[in-house]
Simulated scan of single mutants.
Amino acid sequence: MGDTTGSAAAAAALLIFGFFLFVVAIAAYVIGSFFLMKVFEKAGVEGKWRAWVPVYNVMIFAKLGDVSPWVMLIAVGAAAVLNQVPVLGPLLGLLPLAVSALAAWRVGLKLQKETPWVVLYIFLALVWLGINAFDRSRWNPVVGPAPWAGNAFLADATVWAGVPVQPQPAAGSAPAPGFAPPAGYTPAAPSTGYAPPAPPTGYAPPAAPPAASPPAPPAGDVPPAPPAGDVPPAPPAPAGDQND
Rank of each mutant, 00 (worst) to 15 (best):
F34R: 06
A219Q: 10
I60G: 01
V45I: 10
A25P: 00
V58G: 01
A171W: 02
K63D: 07
T115A: 15
L15Q: 07
V99C: 10
P175E: 14
V67L: 10
G89I: 08
V58N: 09
F20S: 13
A98N: 07
P214L: 14
G32K: 00
S100I: 00
A155Y: 06
P226M: 14
Y29G: 09
P205V: 06
P232S: 15
V142Y: 05
A225N: 07
G65V: 01
R136M: 09
P199N: 02
F153E: 08
F40G: 02
Q242M: 10
V222S: 09
P238T: 05
L97P: 00
Y121L: 04
P214H: 05
P218R: 11
V159C: 13
F20E: 05
L15H: 00
M1L: 09
A170C: 03
E46G: 10
L102K: 04
S33E: 05
A216Q: 14
A98Y: 13
G32E: 06
G108Q: 05
V143R: 14
G89F: 10
A216L: 13
R106I: 04
L91S: 10
M59Q: 01
A204T: 14
W49I: 11
P205H: 06
P217Y: 07
P217N: 11
G108N: 03
V118I: 07
L97E: 04
P181D: 04
L73P: 12
V99H: 04
V127N: 05
Y185H: 09
A79R: 06
K63N: 07
G202I: 08
F179P: 02
P175G: 11
N132K: 04
A170R: 05
L82T: 12
L64F: 06
T5M: 09
P233A: 13
L15C: 09
I31D: 00
D3E: 07
A75S: 12
V45F: 02
F22K: 00
I60W: 00
M1Y: 08
G144L: 02
L88G: 10
F20W: 12
A43H: 10
L154W: 15
W70T: 11
G229N: 14
Y194N: 00
P226C: 12
A62N: 06
N57I: 00
S213R: 15
A62T: 09
P200V: 09
N132G: 01
G65E: 04
G44M: 11
S213I: 14
P175T: 08
A101F: 08
T158W: 10
E41G: 15
V67C: 00
V99D: 06
F17W: 03
F35S: 02
P96F: 11
Y185K: 02
F35E: 06
A146E: 07
A25T: 13
A10N: 05
